[in-house]
Design a protein around this nucleic acid. Structure first.
Lengths: 143, 143
DNA sequence: GTTCAGGGTTCCCTGAGGGAACTCCGACTG
DNA sequence: CAGTCGGAGTTCCCTCAGGGAACCCTGAAC
């Protein structure tokens, strides 16, 4: 499907995949850790990890002489975490309730705790769903 | 789970839900349109639409004296489209290949075709996965 | 009063996910 | 140097969610 959303979902759209990515992001990188933290079945965890490695989002890397492996984010995977960060922003805003957000971000550049915001890469002003028109691009499907 | 990603996935984490949201975003708002465009089974489409309405992301609205309904984004749903926009950005960058992005965004504020960028809401500088520390927030699970 | 179209239900059937047990392999342990 | 440990998967069975196709319901139009 000529749709970057569908293509992205083909990488992280299966159940558990985003949560696996989150865990790797926050430092849970080994099979047993992931399985214990998520409560996912081992079979599915194996499938998902292989898929994410195949797609170049994670790298499987030995960390011992024994057959032990850890999973780390590639550059491609690290950029995918942007999607998770925006999910967090939405969840914090609409689903966190009284208790407030479970996790805060401290921005290295300014040292402040702050939310992430979507901006236009060209002019720097806010850019959300209502602020844009959609145009067919070069990769659009020909009718 | 005290995790805004998991909570957000509880709303749009099921298969098809993000694509339904995308279709509604771009103007496909009726049951038959969605079913035809996505090729999803009618049963699952019914389930997903009900779920999205229950969660306050879509609104089911009659558009005729006959029992005809269209689905439109609520404010909550419109903000959720931010997540899709970032998915598009990642898909355009890593998955579009030679053909280039299938869809372009023209920003109302500046009139330019531009990508979306993640910025710190406090200082305005870029804010990506590697630019932040994670801190426990008020809604964090107590150990 | 029959047809039509949109918007769903119902039915069956297959395949993906959960759970628990099993395997494999290198390193320690006595 | 046999036994055992622990991480990282495999294998097996079983259930339940998703696909497909047919069916139903309703109000308007012919």
């Amino acid at each position: 499907m000529a749709c970057s959303i569908a293509r992205t979902l083909d990488v992280i759209g299966e159940p558990w995949s985003p949560l696996i990515l989150r865990d790797v992001w926050v430092g849970l990188s080994r099979f047993e850790q992931l399985q214990a933290d998520l409560g996912i079945s081992r079979k599915v965890l194996t499938e998902r990890l292989n898929h994410l490695v195949d797609r170049g989002v994670l790298e499987r890397r030995p960390y011992d002489r024994r057959p032990r492996y850890e999973y780390v984010l590639t550059d491609k995977g690290t950029e995918l975490v942007d999607v998770l960060m925006v999910m967090v922003g939405w969840g914090d805003r609409w689903l966190a309730g009284q208790a407030g957000p479970p996790v805060l971000y401290r921005h290295h550049a300014c040292g402040q705790v702050a939310a992430v915001d979507l901006r236009c890469a060209h002019c720097g002003l806010p850019m959300h769903a209502g602020d844009i028109d959609l145009l067919p691009g070069p990769g659009a499907a020909r009718p």
